[in-house]
Design a protein around this nucleic acid. Sequence first.
DNA 1: CTTTTTTGCACAATCGATGGTGCAATGACT
DNA 2: AGTCATTGCACCATCGATTGTGCAAAAAAG
Lengths: 356, 356
Amino acid sequence: MTNGGRKKATIYDLSVLSGSSPSTVSAVLNGTWRKRRIKESTAELIRSLAETHQYTANRQARGLRSSRSGLVGLLLPVHDNRYFSSLAQTFEAHVRSKGQCPIVVSASRDPEEERRTAETLISYSIDELFICGATDPDGVHEVCEAAGLRHINIDLPGTKVPSVISDNFEGGRLLTEAIIRHFPAERPLEPDDLYLFGGRDDHATRERIRGFRAVKEELLGSDPDECIWPTGYAADNARRAFEAFYEQHGKLPRGFFVNSSINFEGLLRFMAEHPLENFTDLVVGCYDYDPFASFLPFPVIMIRQNIEGMIAKAFEVIEEPRASLQIHMIEPQLVPPRTALTGPLDALMDSEMPQE
Amino acid sequence: MTNGGRKKATIYDLSVLSGSSPSTVSAVLNGTWRKRRIKESTAELIRSLAETHQYTANRQARGLRSSRSGLVGLLLPVHDNRYFSSLAQTFEAHVRSKGQCPIVVSASRDPEEERRTAETLISYSIDELFICGATDPDGVHEVCEAAGLRHINIDLPGTKVPSVISDNFEGGRLLTEAIIRHFPAERPLEPDDLYLFGGRDDHATRERIRGFRAVKEELLGSDPDECIWPTGYAADNARRAFEAFYEQHGKLPRGFFVNSSINFEGLLRFMAEHPLENFTDLVVGCYDYDPFASFLPFPVIMIRQNIEGMIAKAFEVIEEPRASLQIHMIEPQLVPPRTALTGPLDALMDSEMPQE
DNA sequence: CTTTTTTGCACAATCGATGGTGCAATGACT
DNA sequence: AGTCATTGCACCATCGATTGTGCAAAAAAG
């Protein structure tokens, strides 16, 4: 270690070593030195000193002075789910490619927590905030607005700044239609055989339900209200809903529209406690994609939201100086059963060679 | 908005408004005011002003002064995977409960990227770093050491600071034994029917292989070298390995030990291109737990690493002033097929009530 | 009514980097 | 030789919060 082992070198250290002033050192190391007419040889000297002393700028100091931090925040409902973790992965790649540092935090779908978390991020002077799947996007907006922080909504729209979301109506339609058509013509699905479980009273769920009902009306001719069970996003709430249904009817519906992979986990929990034979005439549609779920022993039709598309669009829109207050819809994709799609990891993994 | 809409209030603003000095304001708002013998009524006044002006401390300024930031880092290989995203979720909860801000970043299992990422985090003066699944933990250690940053290894051990890892040998044994015993006595598994796929030359893989081989030797009497295929962690590498095997043998092995859920995705990719009938006499063991994988149409035995246990232990050890250079092993758990376990989300979701 | 103690707070340096401004030294030009 | 422009850099205030120190005013003690 060139360094004694402890404290990091500062521009003042390098200033002493190089015989230049701190401002010169600063200019050399942050790239503004040409503008300041620093001699090439001076710059060279300082750069080499920085190198040997492993200098890295203290970003808190820089951020304090410039009131920017190089941090870009992503506010998620939760981490532990393939949809949001893929979002995080993709977000990270985008932020890194701009030379900034991603900071991904979850707020449990709790409006209060969302605001507090945004406050915290703001106190670190983050440069931008991507608000994903927030229960109260406009609440978070106020916090950002008050701090003059650029932000954008993803996945669930707000009314104060632009949003980039999945086309949930169309996705709901696609998925519902695919479920219905998956049943053979000789044993067609009845209207009261197709239920929607999960989700809550948010924009995404409402739109999916709208698509669901439209297609049911269109293809099955009717659309009973009792086929909609919004159980919230917790897996265990969904499980209880399935249990309740099973108690009531002695069986499950033949067709399911499950509103998210988390709700789908509730179905697994139900299934773990009931014999497999009960699920031979079952088609599940899930609004989310998970590779393992796609291969379950009954037909699972999934919707994969276009994560790369949404993130890319969001970065595009957030850079626009005067973006119009608009909801950008990104088309999701229908995934037939037994399909293994590639994800954001596949872009990374090239570098990883088998050992030995 | 009490605030005009723009710049955040500072202690100087409050100092003017309250008629006290900035240092008094600071002391009141950071809790050290009793030590400084500030009058209760003064404190009260300042607190109420802070409230109405929505004051929040600028953490870059605080961090600069105190050379602490309140940020705690978690360095992951990747986000997009249930194991690591559960880790992130659990880590977040722990950090939050200490009143600090979690910052989770991934480094793609690339040693160079790992060091750079650690450097970046250090430049933000993070207070602690949890190094999870790093390809080169000791490389990251050097960076941390040079900056005087407390750190600890998780999941993959290093040699310079304490590590908290899964007991991979025991987990490997458990999983291998469960795979073997899952075959009925009348059609027992032959030694060359049980293969291990995935992983690379890291501590975890080596230990799992050691467990695998020990159990094979013990229960099946022999343990051919060609049954070990370390393909790296990329899904597509694993897929190619399965294809290659299939080419070569015209079938898959009857028993699989798959080294991670990411490798398991490679198996799915393989299966998507081959008829389902090929997989009737197949038992898969996977070193990772994923609820959907557990319900696949063939027996899937999984290992769930004790994430909560590992994180809790890591926080405990990292707080110890002079922790001994030790590898703490946390026992993983064998998960039989068709099991839906609860995860870190279940602790959160209570607050989420079904709507309507 | 002094002297001592306690109370309550203000002052000022500091953390590390940034960027506007000023000024000496050098070279160019008449 | 004298004027002017250019080069190359140093100086200093600043960002917002923290913290050691000092010192008046009030209270207690004598």
